[in-house]
Design a protein around this nucleic acid. Sequence first.
DNA 1: AACCTTTTATGAAAGGTTTCACACGAGCGA
DNA 2: TCGCTCGTGTGAAACCTTTCATAAAAGGTT
Lengths: 365, 365
Amino acid sequence: MRRVTIYDVAGKAGVSTAAVSHAFNDPERLRATTVSRILDAARELGYAPNPHARALHSQRVGVLGVLFPQPIATVFANPFFASFLEGIGSVTDERGIGLLTVTPHGGSLERAIAAAPVDGFVIIGLDERHAEVAPLRKRGVPFVVVDGDPETASSVNVDDEGGANAAADLLLEHGHREILVLTFHAPPEELDKDLGVRGRRLRGYRRAFVDHGVALDDDAVVRTFVTLAGGDTAFAKAWADGARPTAVLAVSDIIAIGAMRAAKRLGLRIPEDLEVIGFDDIPLASASDPALTTVHQPIAEKGRVATRLLIRELDEGGPRERIVLPTELLLRESTRTQNSKSRGQGVAKGGTEREGKRTLKAAAR
Amino acid sequence: MRRVTIYDVAGKAGVSTAAVSHAFNDPERLRATTVSRILDAARELGYAPNPHARALHSQRVGVLGVLFPQPIATVFANPFFASFLEGIGSVTDERGIGLLTVTPHGGSLERAIAAAPVDGFVIIGLDERHAEVAPLRKRGVPFVVVDGDPETASSVNVDDEGGANAAADLLLEHGHREILVLTFHAPPEELDKDLGVRGRRLRGYRRAFVDHGVALDDDAVVRTFVTLAGGDTAFAKAWADGARPTAVLAVSDIIAIGAMRAAKRLGLRIPEDLEVIGFDDIPLASASDPALTTVHQPIAEKGRVATRLLIRELDEGGPRERIVLPTELLLRESTRTQNSKSRGQGVAKGGTEREGKRTLKAAAR
DNA sequence: AACCTTTTATGAAAGGTTTCACACGAGCGA
DNA sequence: TCGCTCGTGTGAAACCTTTCATAAAAGGTT
């Protein structure tokens, strides 16, 4: 069963292939009666222009790739990525652009990138320092990097350091001195000193400790997996090892919620015995018990902004930009509302009402 | 900045384009030294075969489309679709196949389908009775229909009717006579009598009512939106209108959870005053309070099966199949564990242990 | 009726790859 | 030495569309 091509339509309508093409793409150029004759023939034959041929000619396929460093199954299982894709999709949808999720092919991200029939990439959690991404620049394929190196060409990031700083600052203001910091294992590529999201958040915490003249022991920084179980076991193990933290800073909500679970199991009351602050503000954060105080970042918006940037670059060769979106500390139930302590310095300047919760803009760097 | 093509590589290596192609696709055919000379040239130039040209020639692009009838933003926000995509992605990933989400382009699903550079489609929640889907068959594009007409060519479904029947049967066995049935608004295309998932589930409920000789009033079947708020308001409104149900059957977990919220607000205890059974077993179902008794369906597995089916059809022109996966009633906390009543007839035959919960295979039709 | 302008339609090239059929030479057996 | 086969490499067609340049037809003016 051969596919029906433009030749078949041209033959049936008694015109040239050029005429058929015009009938679809620029009907004004043809007599109205001719156009309808062609369109009729096309409909009868069930003709639709071959997207590959069209793409080959026009150097444009109308599809954007979203590049993940992880297997696709973990992508869709992750609420963070779901929100991110939701943001991206809202833009591509309204522009009539397709969305291709690109993940490592049998382990090789490079092959996946080369084989992807797309006009450009939104890249999440990787950047040009990675060997797979660099060739794109060389080949002239447009891309926007999200949550990668904020210095690269076109990139979208959030103020990770500022948000983390605000979180740590709040706990230190509350008088805590034994704070357990939970972070995730560094991806193997990031062996170098504290690059990426994780590094920036840790830097934000550290700066607050320095500002308050409080030491942050290496022992107090624990790496674990970004899962409920990861946060749970990390806290439980630290406790078993004799640590007696009065507060927890986690670089991810899911880790924070896992830690709360462990703490509750150990009989600790939150926030009375233990204050906890997460990061990201995934949907589960407001649904957990107690509701998690966390650093909110605009996940879907990040996707939207990145996509618009990419499309503009594609359409107009627009200028490359570096965008940093704000984060904000969202006070919920896993921290104490503390009006007593002095608030002279530090980050906690003037909360505003939002979603019925008090909110603090993260300090700009 | 012109893209580097196979000609550039051929020129640099001093061979024909055919040789370059062979070096990549069938190196055995060439002398080893020639191959490495070509590969070196390619690497230096940063060459990668143009996916569009390759697809045009080979009639194969290595991308599968997943067709949704809804805007992409709602897709990713929906936990059901997330699990479904996770299943699909696990298969495409291991085969090195790309995944393109296809949603209406500016309202037109037809245009989106025509423009999608894919080898085939997994279609969810639509089938050949829809005008947009029918042309695919005519054009010879392979597709597999999920949650559509179980009679079509290649399709994957679950035993909606059996699962629903088991759920209704349980409640009727428990002696309930005032049961509120919550369903969702029919998509406009399904004006005809009870097609699709919704229709099959309702049919399952109805059959149980008939078997028990209990009447199901039209008033007792309420349509609402598939959201927490939808379930909440639907129950609240029924209550306000004077209905005093002692049990709820919902065709969707999210509706069921919404109804529970409303019921708790009205002071009802679950399951003592009100038993509730949902459908789907989304992750939230086991996390709700109380944990929701529901009809489990293998969402991710449905995606995996459909994808394997499609790939087989693509690779081997394999036979078209109609697959129906089982559902099972998962007893959790929103129904009573009732050993007292007689269980002579009906569905509840022998529970097995699973996830520490009692489980009942849905009655086969 | 001749000429010019506008409208309508076409021929052919270009876009980049793969692959079929063939060519060339070397090695080998008879 | 002839004739084969085998190993390597190439030319050119095919995949299908869009678009540039141009031809043909139609209409209008003098």
